[in-house]
Design a protein around this nucleic acid. Structure first.
Lengths: 334, 334
DNA sequence: CATGTAAATGTAAGCGCTTACATTTTGGGA
DNA sequence: TCCCAAAATGTAAGCGCTTACATTTACATG
């Protein structure tokens, strides 16, 4: 059932196990003849080094653990793409896990990764994420993305959600909306709260109320529900800030189904700028946060920290969302 | 630098390391008092078991290796979603790796996984994938998806690409196309070849030639190029089979940019039915292969095999694509 | 109270590898 | 030819854990 081990190879090549190890790993202090014999034996036996054992001996796994709320979908997929790219560039592998929006799952995912990874990259947008780091073994290099446990320690990457909410409100006001609505994310979500807060604050600065709010869960489906709700609302808004693009996509579909014109009847602005935002009808105005770059930069931050002997992670950073104006808020244009 | 070990816990609780292990793992042959002491010491020391060491001792990692051409994007992301779902249901973790369209990378990814996973799920649509299994340690449970090394052994999951190509041609013919074109995938890709072959055979059955072909690489970008090419072709086709949805999306954009009406000037049919196909303008006619189910079913096949003591994988299966007719081939409608 | 048995705990080997250190081999210079 | 440093190879400890087996403890029975 098990494959050949180094011991088998050593025996077949009639050398000590240490020499076999050296030969296989390409150390330079082995004679060519010995190396040849070992390599021959290895390929004859179809020997493949046992990564787990090697890691145990070297205390290095060359693997990074990645924990995201989900590991698929436009948004997370794009983060993973960034992580993957940066990891490949460094010869690192990634062990991914989805927490499915549940803090306990995130915690158990982290624990399961101990001893299998050199460090962990976690995105845990729960308001009470500090439980996560509390249960961690000390000394495990950790970088957090968009987690409420932000500023307490290094290695925190965050998005300026509050600022983004303000920009969204500002944009709607600028294009002339007088009655703005909001599709927010779940209240248990740290980021959703911040976006909402920024949106409200900017609106109130302009003397506007936000009478209509719909709470979604960041899924396309809930965005669709929101669209229905707003299409039928008695005091129908003329502009809506949807807290993420996936919901905005659902919203767009619902509004189309209800015969509401976007942007002329209702303008829509999303958040994230996921790839699909360029393909919707109409194309979606949104806030770009550099999803891909979040992936690459967070991986780099973590990997650099791991390479430091003291294992300390460098300072994180905060991302400022940038408005990408597309058709879904281009009122009057054609 | 390292965290607490079981030895530390045992010492702190003043018990033997074996007892500590039993207490931590919840075996029933430990006195309550001893267990309490151990658990207390463990939490005080913030002990988290070392997964790697445990795996080495038990010869079980509870992890599945997943190797896909890429680990992001609509198509692969959807497969991963399926895999993730099925894995979670069984308490398994997944170690993912992208081969980036390169067979050698796939091979090295597999080797890097040996000793870290209980089995491997690999999608390797290269015409010469047999190199992959040749280099593998025997006895490593393996399930292949859409790989040319199909029928030789159990655990092969494939798509009836040839049949799908035929369906695509049949559909275009049925809606009245007289001059059909094809955007194929790279010739090094096993699946692309089969889709093309099916498409051609069915066309020729109907007495049609396929004068215009454009070779893409499955990316949206190359689909866009294809769209430009066809829009300007002297003998412009009235229907095109694009070998995957991602390229079809790019194609749709290019045709729109060129002022070509889809479906009336040119009908477009894709392949895969990725989620985005429902959102394009016009919505995309395509062939559904149950991407999500490919993920769940392949994981189940592999996991069941691993649970067999002899580690043999059960028989695989072949998926028959199903036509999903949407607007991009609805000629004349509206 | 001696005794046998089951339950609780301890001892130590081993999972497959790396690596410090010990030992042997090699080869150039005197 | 002999000697010695450097190079090549071997020995063995250990990475953190599980687990077979040995030992001790607890307890009911005659």
């Amino acid at each position: 059932m098990r494959g050949a081990t180094l011991k088998d190879v050593a025996k077949a090549a009639d050398v000590s196990i240490a020499s076999a190890s050296r030969a296989i790993n390409g150390l330079d202090n082995v004679k060519e003849d010995l190396r040849r014999r070992v390599l021959e034996a290895a390929s004859k036996l179809r020997y493949v080094p046992h990564g787990g054992a090697r890691s145990l001996a070297t205390n290095r796994t060359n693997t990074i653990g990645v924990i995201l709320p989900d590991i698929y979908g436009e948004f997370f997929s794009e983060i993973i793409r960034g992580i993957d790219f940066a990891a490949r560039a460094r010869g690192l592998h990634i062990l991914v896990s989805g927490s499915h929006g549940d803090l306990q799952e995130a915690v158990s995912a982290v624990r399961a990764m101990v001893g299998r990874v050199d460090g962990i990259l976690v995105m845990s947008p729960f308001v009470d994420s500090q439980d996560l780091v509390a249960v961690l073994p000390l000394n495990l290099p950790l970088v957090t993305i968009s987690s409420s446990i932000g500023d307490e320690f290094n290695g925190a990457i965050s998005i300026d959600n509050y600022g983004g909410g303000q920009i969204a409100a500002g944009h709607l006001i600028e294009i002339g909306c007088k009655n703005i609505g909001h599709v927010c994310g779940p209240t248990s979500n740290f980021e959703a709260c911040e976006r909402k807060r920024g949106f409200f604050d900017r609106a109130s600065d302009a003397g506007l109320e936000v009478p209509n709010i719909f709470e979604g869960d960041f899924s396309e489906e809930s965005g669709y529900q929101a669209g229905i709700y707003f299409a039928k609302a008695k005091n129908r808004p003329d502009g809506i800030f949807v807290a993420n693009d996936m919901m905005a996509v659902g919203c767009l579909m619902a509004l189309a189904d209800q015969g509401v014109n976007v942007p002329n009847d209702i303008a829509i602005i999303g958040f994230d700028d996921i790839p699909i935002a360029r393909f919707t009808a109409p194309t979606l105005t949104t806030l770009n946060v550099g999803v891909y770059e979040i992936g690459t930069r967070s991986l780099d931050l973590l990997a650099n920290g791991i390479e430091n002997d003291d294992g300390t992670i460098g300072p994180g950073f905060k991302i400022e969302p940038e408005l990408v104006a597309r058709k879904s808020t281009a009122k009057g244009a054609n």
